[in-house]
Nucleic acid binder design. Structure first.
Lengths: 157, 157
DNA sequence: TCCATTCACTATCATCAACGTAGTGAGATC
DNA sequence: GATCTCACTACGTTGATGATAGTGAATGGA
């Protein structure tokens, strides 16, 4: 792709120039759905991105203010990537894409009950996801994940 | 872009493989927002796609069941492109992308009152847009456009 | 203090898609 | 029948991606 940036300020084009490539949203997905935060974890994703491509993508997402790149204070080798508030704002887009794909792709990996839960009350679910990810959690992975808090609401039981 | 398809059946990846390039969603945008339906009209878009790239994109969107390619019965030179039902399903994604970009890009071309109208009741607005586009209308262009039907509701007055 | 391991990248090169411009053939219009 | 319009195609250049190997700093254990 030539990725000519600045083609226009049409909001659709602006979005596509920010994340309209095969990898940018997959990084955001890895954070939001699976709680990944390091180069190594992104690299291990099912889609097998090349390290050079991943490095370039992380650098651009950081420069664009979507990701926040922070060296790990407890291990100087590690670098932790988190979503900024602008990056958290991409969550509704992720949910709509997952919605669409789940209804189109007969072999989708999307759990039907999860898609149904999102469709049931998208606003509430979006808020819950944003709050969870902002606090370092994810949708599917971890004790404080969104799906965990759905099956075992709040701190009861 | 290498556009390696079939990397995974993750719904986010599926969506990106279908429209995660700089041009596919711009074609959909041209139809939904501006009522464009022909090769020439897409080609004239602000972002200046190359004809070879546009031809390849239209062919793929047709093959993927997102666009419907029909020769114009009144003029055998012309070919009319319309969204299929799957293509209409992309409208919520477009709206979310526009939402995000409008809140990020200080120079966005998105009309603030339009963004506000969508945010006010996204479900109702989505339904209205889908119905309008399905009937050949668009959001901004034409007498039967969505914005026209908002300022002058239904057939009253 | 070594040494193996882990981490986040970088280097390299072939490949393939996008860019930009020019051109083509079928069909409409005058 | 000459011109114009339409949807493309051709083609050389550019640049990002794909795949694999390698680097240097930091950690952890012996």
């Amino acid at each position: 792709m030539r990725r000519t940036t600045g083609k226009s300020h049409c909001p659709i084009n602006f979005g596509l120039e920010a994340f309209g490539d095969p990898w940018a949203l997959l990084v955001v997905r890895d954070i939001v759905y699976f709680g990944k935060h390091t180069f190594k974890e992104f690299l291990a994703s099912e889609e097998a991105v090349a390290p050079s491509v991943l490095a370039a993508r992380l650098a651009r997402l950081d420069a664009d203010g979507i990701l926040d790149r922070t060296p790990d204070p407890t291990d100087a080798r590690r670098v932790v990537y988190n979503l900024t508030e602008a990056g958290l704002g991409l969550i509704p887009i992720l949910l709509e894409i997952a919605n669409w794909s789940a209804s189109i792709d007969p072999e989708t990996d999307a759990p039907p009950e999860w898609i149904a839960a999102v469709r049931r009350d998208e606003t509430t679910m979006t808020d819950l996801i944003v709050r969870t990810v902002r606090n370092g959690g994810s949708i599917f992975v971890g004790a404080d994940s969104v799906v965990a808090s759905l099956t075992q609401p709040a701190t009861t039981q």
